[in-house]
Amino acid sequence: MVMAQGDSTKKPARESIIYLQYHLENNRLPYLKIQTKNKSDNGIVTATNIPVTVYLDTDLSKEAMVGQIATDNTGTAIFGIPPSLASQWKGKSAHTFYAHTDASPAFDAASKEVSVAMARLKLDTVRTDETKSVVATLEKNDGGSWVPIPEVDVKLAVRRYGGNVNIGDDDTYATDSTGKATGEFLLSSLPGNKQGTLELVALVDDNDEVGTLESSMMVPWGTIYEYKSDFGKRSLWSTPRRAPLWLIVMAYGCIISVWSVIIYLITRIIKIKKLGKAVRT
């Protein structure tokens, strides 16, 4: 006990880590996803409400500072690239982002950088009489012109509530020399919305060269699904007034029959009492 108390006064060893990811969705405005975590003997724990300063292309230079943001209660911050940096952004084919935190009781001083090439991910479909295919094209900016990026794994999927469903048997499809990744769409009976529309997704996940790129498009390839609410139906899990009729009949039938007997027996006791009083009088 004494030893434990002695140990508990020691400050546990801690390593503060910044996670920095570049994201681009549908080839629009890019953003950075920043996460702050502390690593200790207890494992990796999220550090919340940590201020992070972001620099573009030049580290720790006042002129290069593009903004400051604090992580939220989940230890995450989404940092959008400000429109004021458009000319600087377009001026180069590749950029480096730097993220820094100052030392605080909750988090040590830490830094992280990520370099990305300006890239785009285009999504298209090819349909023949027999097959439907999804084609994703990955290109990067090279001195003002777009060139294909080969040998990059692209995930081709359909967006669902809980995540993405692969369109075929493979998890990912590699881009070829033209930067295209093609996969056959095998989900012929997947329910879509009321119009049978599905959302196709192409995803390059945390690539060393281009970061995380995601593009999506709507296609009428799903089966038509009309949601029918069971809310008003009688069921075992609904509100008391919506109990199944068979249960109501069975349960109340049993209750009424047994309690009828009980009430009858109580009337018998009253009868016995009356008979007793009659004898007395």
Binding site: Y264, L265, R268, I272, L275, G276, V279
Partner: peptide, 18 residues
Amino acid sequence: FWKGTVEQFKIANRSILI
């Protein structure tokens, strides 16, 4: 009120059986 009359016994015994 229990006087032990035949009628009371009859009712009581029948009630106990039920």
